[in-house]
């Protein structure tokens, strides 16, 4: 990364940190002066108080042009309504593989739809939405995709 590229990413991360502080203070950017190591992390207690979730957003070397990856570090693993482990790669659960330690990766955006204007606040909001829908799945058995579409319909 060039010096300009380096400072461009650091500037961006500083803005992301400030925006998170304003809107979602449970999250913050760690190592924000080192783009190669920086990440967002924080804990979220679910609305239904079921679990405490530790979330992490990992910035790849191409960030912000390249999409960051969103993980649920805790609880690990996650279990579905029927008691089975949450599928690793599922459109109906918006999961996108898993991390090296079995943590769930959430599909917050299709790889081919990521655009660099999307803020970390928007991404973390998406993760909170996922959690609230996941907990509703645990109560009703309905898939996250199904619930997500229902909400989309209700707001458009």
């Amino acid at each position: 990364m060039s010096l300009f590229g380096f400072s461009r990413v650091v500037d961006r991360l500083c803005h992301e940190e400030a925006a998170l502080r304003d809107h979602l203070p449970q999250f913050r950017v760690y190592d924000l002066h080192d783009p190669g190591r920086a990440f967002v992390s924080g804990w979220e207690r679910s609305p239904a108080n079921q679990y405490d979730y530790q979330l992490s957003l990992i910035f790849p070397s191409g960030y912000p042009d390249e999409m960051p990856l969103l993980y649920i570090l805790q609880p690990r693993p996650l279990y579905c309504y029927d008691g089975a482990q949450l599928p690793e790669l599922s459109h109906s659960f918006h999961t996108w593989g898993s991390g090296s330690n079995g943590q769930t990766q959430i599909c917050h955006c299709h790889r081919d739809e990521w655009d660099p204007w999307r803020s970390c606040v928007a991404v973390m909001l998406r993760s909170l939405l996922w959690i609230s829908l996941f907990e509703r799945h645990l109560r009703t058995g309905r898939t996250i995709d199904d619930l997500f579409e229902e909400i989309e319909r209700s707001i458009t």
């Binding site: 961006r12 803005h15 660099p116 803020s119 606040v121 928007a122 909001l125 998406r126 939405l129 609230s132």
Partner: peptide, 26 residues
């Protein structure tokens, strides 16, 4: 975010307002 000067111009990043209404739901 790709060619501009974020430090000078300040960010105008997308933070969808519709989603924020939803996160409080439960």
């Amino acid at each position: 975010p790709c060619c501009g000067d974020v430090a000078k111009a300040g960010p105008e990043l997308h933070t969808p307002s519709a989603v924020s209404a939803l996160t409080g739901e439960g």
